[in-house]
């Protein structure tokens, strides 16, 4: 069995796009490494795809837990001044941040 060409399933462009969305600044070399590594992971998924899983329920969460809930009771949080002292910039009790371009709401 020959090793499939990673770029056949995962293009370098897709990896570059995902990196951009995640605000990762990758060098061309890093992009090659990442493309190979991510393609390896996809190989693993394609192995799973080959199995007959018709009788296996989809797994939403690996933990055998559900309905972990807490009561709606206030607990004292963090002190504002202490938190803002750790921020790069603050003003009027708020975090000061650079102007935003291409914003979201």
């Amino acid at each position: 069995m020959t090793t499939p060409d990673p770029s056949a399933r995962l293009s370098r462009d897709v990896v570059a796009k995902v990196a951009r969305l995640a605000r990762l600044d990758l060098t061309p070399d890093e992009l090659d490494v990442m493309t190979n590594q991510l393609a390896g992971m996809l190989d693993h998924f394609s192995d799973i795809d080959k199995l007959d899983l018709a009788d296996v329920a989809p797994l939403a969460q690996p933990l055998p837990l559900k309905n972990v809930l807490r009561d709606d009771v206030v607990v004292k949080g963090l002190d504002r001044d202490e938190v803002l002292a750790a921020a790069p910039a603050a003003e009027d009790g708020r975090f000061r941040v650079p102007p935003t371009i291409g914003f979201q709401e």
Binding site: V68, L69, V83
Partner: peptide, 24 residues
């Protein structure tokens, strides 16, 4: 007042874990 109702989960501090509110 601004930023008086904050905690590690609200601020996304490392290691803080969310726990779902039953009433919500």
């Amino acid at each position: 007042d601004p930023n008086t109702n904050i905690d590690p989960v609200t601020l996304g501090l490392p290691g803080a874990l969310p726990v779902l509110n039953r009433r919500a």
